[in-house]
């Protein structure tokens, strides 16, 4: 699946997107963050304050306990400031 990063999260990650293949045991957004943080120091640092980070799966906003099965694209971003 593809992960997208936006705004200061993109800056902290030094990239706007990456392809990942998490193991089957990783079934939720929260577990995906845990798994990435355990394997990527930069990610762990960027996601330090994970409670404020929002997520979407295939363009739908989701909570961190949402299942990621069948997700094609997961986006992570800070609170939104449009309008």
């Amino acid at each position: 699946m593809k992960i997208l990063y936006f705004a200061w999260l993109r800056e902290r990650m030094n990239k706007g997107q990456e392809d990942v293949a998490p193991p089957e045991a990783v079934t939720t957004i929260d577990q995906l963050i845990d798994w990435k943080a355990a394997n990527d120091e930069g990610f762990a640092l960027a996601f330090e304050d994970r409670a404020i980070i929002r997520a979407s799966i295939d363009d739908e906003l989701v909570d961190h306990d949402a299942p990621i099965a069948n997700a094609r694209e997961i986006a992570f971003f800070p609170p939104m400031t449009g309008g």
């Binding site: 936006f6 200061w8 800070p78 609170p79 939104m80 400031t81 449009g82 309008g83």
Partner: peptide, 13 residues
């Protein structure tokens, strides 16, 4: 629409 857009549409300033 404006109230929802401010907090739930993916734009960052």
């Amino acid at each position: 629409v404006m109230d929802w857009l401010k907090t739930d549409a993916p734009f960052w300033k």
